[in-house]
Design a protein around this nucleic acid. Structure first.
Lengths: 250, 250
DNA sequence: CGTCGCGTTGATTTTGCTCAAGATGGGTGG
DNA sequence: CCACCCATCTTGAGCAAAATCAACGCGACG
């Protein structure tokens, strides 16, 4: 399974799908403020950007496979991706969703610890692992930023352990919607009509449930007038407080 | 809940519980090779050790509480600790067990993201967060080592997500025993009669199960002649291959 | 020697899973 | 532009794995 639309163009020329701005290099990148590169000075950024290649992924296209040598790291600029692990019989656990500004490559290992593929069409910046290592040795800010991101990821995962180990289906779904909303705000989007680009199946495999249970639970939350589902894959959070209480088991 | 037996003695003088060696400072520490400090040169180690205080904890003594300001970091030298998060109604998820050589403080946050308390009598080295930050800025090896540990923790947690989200009770317990065994080897202990110092309750809260289910599952594994329980809180792994197959869902 | 914490075992219940059948809706081709 | 098709989502009925509730054994410790 090779990367499908890997076009090793530099940042400036022909990008496969256009969409929002970011025509200029890193300095003008729309996710710069909250991505890895946000902590860099203009000079550092130039050096960083010189090594970066732009990647475009179609829906369902695998970016990296679990167990494959970890040669590249990525920074998401557009779209949504999922990271997952499989058991031999096909059971799947999605370990996280990646959104613009998210960095893929914190788990510095010889091989990728999970498979990653596109949930929606996505664009990313690709950088060789060894380039990143050199850069981060030379640029303390970059190193510190990676540290920071790894810490946040660690804290996030601990919360996900609590969710998977101890929360009910309703608590899981409520937590999930609120987390999506919070993360949308963090990357400069709106909190309320929250974008839910992934399928019920993906949500189920992230929350340790089945599609049917996710669906039923959503219906139930709708019935309690806590959320409203729009048909553009967004969900209106009607009563965030009540949802938060459910999410925390209150 | 204050730290009970916090004795801010330096490394050399009176240690509360004796036990194995480590009478001399860091250089002679018995966990040095696999702990944070393993990557340091003798000179660096001296500087590091100068800031370290020795801590002794009794069973059940909390070391840090979730939400409390993160002022200190720790390196475990003896014993076993557990790290957990709680829901309001008392549901508990143990996010990890800490053994000699393990570092507590990777999740660099303003406040601790989990509560940590002693499972067995334990000794640790304590260091102020800000001291560590200064040291790690001055000592690249230290910084890199912390990076490495955070990466490993991240990979480990991803595996735990798969366990909690998708594995059956039997698969969870089998995975748990094998993980304990593997970690024992990593810190220079033996793989086979594996030390299981924590209670059934703790195991249950780590695996997202109940005490009863853990107990029944252990009984079942015993019935299949895959393990033998000794009465000194160790478990003999009779058929590691079969156990591994179960753990992977085969 | 009694008590208490912990572990085990048994009986019953429940939550979420499995299996099955529609509904919905976006995309495609006539 | 419409009709059809297939994915995805929803809903329903029955089932099963693990939770809950309850009782009991056992060893440690006072």
């Amino acid at each position: 399974m090779p990367i499908k639309s890997d076009r090793p163009t530099l940042l400036t020329p022909a990008r496969p799908k256009s969409g929002t701005g970011d025509s200029a290099p890193c300095a003008a990148c729309h996710v710069r403020d909250f991505a890895v590169c946000g902590a860099l000075t203009p000079a550092e950024l130039d050096r960083f950007g010189g090594e970066v290649h732009r990647i475009y992924l179609d829906i369902g296209t695998p970016l990296v496979d679990e167990g494959e040598p970890e040669r590249n790291v990525y920074s998401v600029t557009q779209g949504c991706l999922k990271s997952y692990k499989l058991l031999a019989d096909g059971r799947r656990q999605i370990t996280g969703f990646l959104f613009p500004g998210d960095f893929l490559g914190l788990t510095r290992s010889d091989t990728y610890t999970a498979t990653v593929e596109a949930v929606t069409p996505a664009t990313l910046c690709r950088l060789q692992r060894k380039e990143l290592d050199q850069l981060s040795r030379a640029i303390p800010n970059l190193d510190r930023r990676l540290h920071e991101l790894a810490s946040e990821a660690l804290a996030e995962l601990q919360g996900q352990l609590l969710l998977l180990g101890r929360k009910t289906a309703q608590e899981r779904v409520a937590s999930f919607l609120l987390t999506l909303s919070r993360r949308a705000v963090e990357r400069g989007s709106v909190a309320n009509p929250v974008d839910v680009p992934m399928s019920r199946d993906d949500i189920a495999d992230f929350l340790g449930l089945t599609t049917e249970t996710v669906s039923r639970t959503m219906t139930r939350l709708r019935g309690q007038n806590l959320i409203v589902a729009n048909k553009d894959k967004t969900i209106e959070i009607v009563d965030a407080d009540a949802l938060a209480k459910i999410a925390e088991g209150l």
